[in-house]
Amino acid sequence: MSKKVLVLGEAREGALRNVSYEAIAAAKTISGGGEVVSVLLGDSVKDLAGELVKFGADRVITVEHPHLKQYTSDGYGQAILAVIEQESPEAIVFGHTALGKDLSPKIASKLQIGLVSDVTSIEGEGDDAVYIRPIYSGKAFEKVKVKNGIQFITIRPNNIAPLVKDDSKTGDVTSLSVDITSLRTIIKEVVRKSSEGVDLSEAKVVIAGGRGVKSEEGFKPLQELANVLGGAVGASRGACDADYCDYSLQIGQTGKVVTPDLYIAAGISGAIQHLAGMSNSKIIVAINKDPEANIFKVADYGIVGDLFEVIPMLTEEFKKLKVNA
């Protein structure tokens, strides 16, 4: 049976996040030929709606309200529940982002339905959809089915390919007016730490440093390489525990799980906890002085050497490549 699928689009600093398009692709699979309806929430988001249509949404519903300028679970919860009530979808897809992780359980609880979090791929379609998700931080995977009721999932960024953009595609954009009241949380301030603006969990390239980076200063060459490649910097627990960097950069079983196209591990020995957080990356490069380091066992390419020599050389080589390209 074909399904009507509701997809939450996500904007960050005035632009749609990639995961919004990936979620549309997931929704298309689940819909089994049904309808994909994107939802955008914010204080001023109408202008972004067209992009969602070009990436495959059949139509878009916007809810605009001053109280939706910043995310709060109460505000966004009221808005999305109003849309769900109007549309009665048979499936719902959110991104497994900070916002999606925070909001989806509340909605599932309210609707008394199941929720499959952090889905990395989908097998089958329509009623036969089976959701694949990592467990034990990627040390194993499980296939999950929704027994009955609304199929509600969140998808991990960077894993489900978006549909090819079709600039000629058109679709209805409608707005729904929702009274957003009694917010229990007031956002006072947002302190932006991710200086280069590429989010670790969505980055296509991650340059990660371990104890071998030796100091806070030692992360600089990694950041320079990340800048050239448009990537993000991450770290092992060792580097975080030694105070070389903030815990928000930690990749591993505790910390973030990342699956970029390219993961460069510099001065990381490769403890099992760290491997859990990155071993499903598409291509792994290891740079380590110790040829026996565990990280080489999961690396596609390895260089035995001092990261402080290798990383700046890599940066220069990639710069040349970009110039020539």
Partner: peptide
């Protein structure tokens, strides 16, 4: 409401 139908290990990565 949801049901795990299979658990498996990821393919072992060759060095």
């Amino acid at each position: 409401k949801i049901e795990t139908i299979e658990i498996y290990l990821p393919p072992k990565k060759e060095a």
